[in-house]
Each structure stands twice: as structure tokens, then as C-alpha cells.
């Protein structure tokens, strides 16, 4: 006999239990508290700076930080999108290690072509093309060849960094262009173009990722590829798209980069760790513990204000990285207790 009956409750008429039963509600509340905890930590640090650092609260200073954060922010958005689309597993998840090196390469292309006297439109197109080409290479490697993202983008990072060095011979290439002039001196409502760039870019990211169909689909692709496939989504296309987008962000950031310094400088690749920190730290502001655009913006500004506050307080810049690291660990440690446990 193979007949079998699961253990039953008495009658058939009971409806299924409602959600929001004890453990679920408690878990949700804990997650909420933790999320607020991250925000509160952020607010507390801001408050501390406001009380102790002269000039911290001034609008001038605030926009200065926003301006300084623009480059990091754009790159962090690119990284966050890649992590969303590829999943957050440590070794096999989505990641783009080449994004900072790509930005360096794009900056070199931009500066070199500008100096060589090319038409600004051509220069911009070439820069964008460079960023997208690197992104396409990543997309091909990850989606087409199935190489681990960590590994594929690492190899591409070497290529991009090497090409940048070849182009600039490891020197500062100063650049002048109407595009740069606009970015450097343009103002609207008393706010600089660079600051506007971050504000508008963030707004656009939040709108597209959290208010159009792209968002839930992208999260589905990263969160459970089989489920996404079963729902009829082209998983490969979405993942490839994230790498192309991160290439676009690299090109976009490179223009901002050159405008800030009026030149392309070596060492852009070193931004990588800060970019990763900003994108990953953003996850703590989300109840789902996934990277979100708002969270990425918040953590980017957090990192920016932190550096700025220390500067105003006259704390040695040597401390900044360490305190950043410690705060990241603190915030993540606090949230890790609200996460569903792995084993």
C-alpha cells in the first residue's frame, strides 16, 4: 500500500492561519529596529559633527560633500546594480572589480582626446564607448563564457588598468573642454553642476530601479535565477545589462573625475575599495538586506560626510580609513544579528 495521509487538524473548514503571527512579526520588527539603527547611527554621527565641527552644517559645506561624493556615488550605483543582478554570494555573486579601473581608463581616453583637440562630442562618445566596451567584455565573460564574476572582472581590471597606463604613461594628463567648463563652473539655483549630477542621477536610479518593472525583475534575477527563468525572464540578458550599466557608470564617473581635477590622474583604480564599501554598506538600509539605490546613496554620503567631518575637526587624515572601516564593521555587525541565520 502506498496510501498515506498527512496528519490532519480536526475539520476542513478552518481557514489558513493569517500572517503576522508571533515569530514573523517579531522578526519584521527586529529588522525594522536594525534598519532604523543604521539610520540612527548615521544621524548620531552627523549630529556629533554638527555640534563639534565648525561650519559642518553650512549649506556650502553640505553641497561640497555632495559634490565630492558624486564620483563615488555614480560608481557605487553601478556596483550596486551589478550586485543586485548577480546575487550577493561572497564568491559566486555579481561583482565588478573592474569598475574603478574602467573609470580610470575612460578618464584617460577623455583627457587624451580632449588634449589632442577632438570635438567634444566625439570625445564624449569615445569615452562612453570605452566604458561600454569594457562593460561588454565583462558581460561576455560572465554571461557568455560563464566565468565567475569575481575572476572575470579581475582579469578585465588588469586590462583596463594597463590600457590606462599605456595611454597616459602613468602621468597626469591635463584636459580642457567645454564639457569640463560646464561641470566645473556651471551652477543652477546656487548649486554646482557636479552636485546636481549626483542629485539627479540618484533620483533617476531610485525611479528606475524602485518604481519601474526593471527593479523587481532585476532583484528576481539576482535573488533566485531559476524563479526568474520560470517567470519567463531572460536572466542572461539582465545580468549582461548590469555589467553594461556598470561600464556606463564608469564612463560617466570618469568625466566627473576629469572635471574635478581638470586632468586625468593615475590611481583612479584605488577607488575600488571605497566603491565596494559604499555599495555593500547600502544593504543595511534595506529590510530585505539587498543593495538598494537609496541605501547606496545614503552610504555614499555617509562616507563623504565622515571624511569631511574629520577634516573639519582637524583629525589627521590617517584616521579616516580606519574609522570608516570600523564604522562599516559596526553597522554591519549590528545588522547581521537581524539577518536570517545561515546554518
Amino acid at each position: 500500500m502506498t496510501a498515506a495521509t498527512p496528519v490532519a487538524a480536526s475539520s476542513a473548514a478552518d481557514p489558513l492561519p493569517e500572517t503576522g503571527t508571533g515569530p514573523n512579526r517579531r522578526k519584521a520588527l527586529a529588522a525594522l529596529a536594525i534598519r532604523l539603527g543604521a539610520l540612527l547611527t548615521f544621524a548620531f554621527i552627523m549630529l556629533y559633527f554638527a555640534l563639534t565641527a565648525r561650519g559642518f552644517l553650512s549649506a556650502y559645506n553640505a553641497f561640497n560633500v555632495v559634490e565630492q561624493s558624486a564620483i563615488l556615488g555614480v560608481l557605487a550605483f553601478g556596483t550596486a546594480v551589478v550586485i543586485v543582478g548577480g546575487g550577493a554570494e561572497v564568491q559566486t555573486g555579481g561583482i565588478d572589480l573592474s569598475i574603478a579601473a574602467n573609470a580610470g581608463l575612460c578618464a584617460a581616453v577623455f583627457a587624451t582626446l580632449s588634449t589632442a583637440g577632438f570635438n567634444p562630442t566625439v570625445v564624449l562618445l569615445a569615452t562612453l564607448g570605452t566604458g561600454l566596451a569594457v562593460g561588454a567584455l565583462n558581460a561576455f565573460a560572465v554571461v557568455g563564457l560563464g566565468i565567475l564574476p569575481l575572476l572575470a572582472t579581475l582579469a578585465v581590471m588588469n586590462v583596463a588598468a594597463g590600457l590606462e597606463l599605456t595611454l597616459t604613461e602613468n602621468t597626469v594628463v591635463s584636459a580642457a573642454s567645454p564639457v569640463l567648463a560646464f561641470l566645473q563652473t556651471g551652477r543652477f539655483l546656487g548649486v554646482s553642476t557636479l552636485a546636481w549630477t549626483l542629485i539627479l542621477f540618484s533620483a533617476l536610479m531610485i525611479l528606475v530601479v524602485h518604481h519601474t518593472a526593471v527593479g523587481p525583475r532585476l532583484y528576481a534575477v539576482g535573488g533566485h535565477p531559476e524563479a526568474a527563468r520560470a517567470a519567463g525572464l531572460d536572466v542572461g540578458a539582465y545580468v549582461a545589462g548590469t555589467y553594461l550599466f556598470s561600464g556606463f557608470c564608469a564612463a560617466f564617473a570618469s568625466v566627473l573625475l576629469v572635471s574635478r581635477l581638470s586632468a586625468s590622474t593615475p590611481g583612479t583604480g584605488e577607488l575600488l575599495l571605497s566603491v565596494l564599501a559604499a555599495a555593500l554598506l547600502g544593504t543595511v538600509f534595506s529590510r530585505r538586506f539587498v543593495p538598494t539605490m537609496g541605501g547606496t546613496l545614503l552610504s555614499t554620503l555617509f562616507i563623504g560626510f565622515l571624511a569631511n567631518g574629520f577634516q573639519l575637526l582637524g583629525v589627521s587624515s590617517y584616521w579616516v580609513a580606519g574609522v570608516q572601516g570600523a564604522l562599516i564593521l559596526l553597522v554591519v555587525a549590528v545588522t547581521s544579528f537581524a539577518r536570517p541565520q545561515e546554518h
Binding site: 561572497v90 564599501a277 580606519g322 555587525a333 547581521s336
Partner: peptide, 20 residues
């Protein structure tokens, strides 16, 4: 102990190490 993911934990330590 704190159950931080290896990526973030060691990234934080990297930053701290640089400051030190």
C-alpha cells in the same frame, strides 16, 4: 562571532589596517 560576511569583514579590516 559577529557573523559579518567575509567580504565586508575583511574589507573593514583592510581599511583599519591602512590607518594603523
Amino acid at each position: 562571532r559577529l557573523r559579518i560576511s567575509p567580504f565586508l569583514a575583511t574589507l573593514g579590516v583592510l581599511f583599519i589596517g591602512q590607518s594603523v
